[in-house]
């Protein structure tokens, strides 16, 4: 059903992720018969897609269309039922946690709700330093605590938080600052890929703009590949290079932003595009 839609004309960037035939289902416990296993609901119905290196790919779709599930499979918080997830040519869809651990350094994630994703009992610098500590242990023996703390503070600086914030607890920050900490943690390991799942939906409009422009400039600076999940097509249009439109676990559109926005293939996309007031965002945001 889902025809892979590629855009060969302008897209020479090699793919960081190649996903082929991705299927995932959840048990439907509401309709479980008494003495039989629960029936399964298919959430991802055989997806094929590529995420080009060094580009931002937006993923949109209505609530429940499987965006977060797809993202969680990419960073392997979930294991698909079938299909391949090729990361630089290596299939990671069936690796176990021990085999994934060295790869995780390259696959980072920024969460929707920083209140939940930042441990309330840890100071900000510790939150950022924890993954650093885990991955530096192997290569450089015995990096001191002070050194690690400095690294964390440098990461905080890159997202525009000065070192004083390192000593705070997450609840002592504003929403925008919290989300910056989430970004700092994700970039501290210098990953190739970042999954950003609705990272601005809890923020007010001006913090949204700041966080998005920060993400954009970091992406350029660090040559990041980003999967950007959002409800907001106007944000996607301004931030992303490519866009994938999901509907009920199937891909409706997959192509560059200009291509999809100017010539949408499906009626549903057309409806989505019509439903949003497009010239809402100012390009100055991303300068």
């Amino acid at each position: 059903m889902a025809v892979p839609l590629t855009c060969p004309q302008t897209d020479p960037a090699p793919a960081l992720f190649s996903v082929r035939g991705l299927r995932l289902s959840f048990p439907d416990s509401a309709h479980k018969p008494l003495f039989a296993p629960a029936p399964r609901i298919e959430v991802l119905k055989g997806l094929d897609l590529d995420l080009p290196k060094g580009q931002i790919t937006g993923i949109v779709g209505e609530s429940g269309s499987g965006k977060s599930t797809l993202g969680r499979v990419l960073v392997r918080l979930m294991r698909p039922d079938a299909g391949q997830v090729l990361l630089n040519g290596q299939d990671i869809s069936t690796l176990n946690e021990a085999a994934l651990r060295p790869l995780r350094r390259n696959l980072q994630m920024i969460f929707q709700d920083p209140m939940s994703s930042l441990n309330p009992r840890h100071k900000v610098w510790r939150i950022v330093a924890a993954p650093l500590a885990r991955y530096e242990c192997g290569s450089a023996p015995q990096i001191g605590l002070a050194e690690r703390r400095d690294q964390a503070l440098r990461a905080l600086e890159r997202v525009g938080l000065d070192p004083g914030f390192g000593e705070r607890y997450p609840h002592e920050l504003s929403g925008g600052q919290r989300q910056r900490v989430g970004i700092a943690r994700a970039i501290a390991l210098e990953p190739e890929f970042i999954l950003a799942d609705e990272i601005v939906s809890g923020l007010d409009v001006s913090s949204q703009a700041q966080v998005l422009s920060l993400l954009k400039s970091l992406a350029q600076e660090m040559n990041l590949t980003i999967a950007f999940i959002s409800h907001d097509l106007s944000v996607i249009r301004h931030l992303c290079d490519n866009v994938i439109v999901l509907n009920r676990g199937e891909i409706l559109e997959n192509g560059s932003v200009e291509q999809v926005f100017s010539a949408p293939q499906s009626d549903i996309t057309r409806l989505l595009l019509d439903a949003i007031p497009l010239p809402e965002l100012d390009d100055k945001w991303f300068d």
């Binding site: 918080l77 995780r104 980072q108 969460f111 939940s116 930042l118 924890a130 885990r134």
Partner: peptide, 15 residues
Amino acid sequence: QMDYVDSAQIGGARR
């Protein structure tokens, strides 16, 4: 259930 648990896994922490 909190995201910081997933976040630790993303950061390479053992269970």
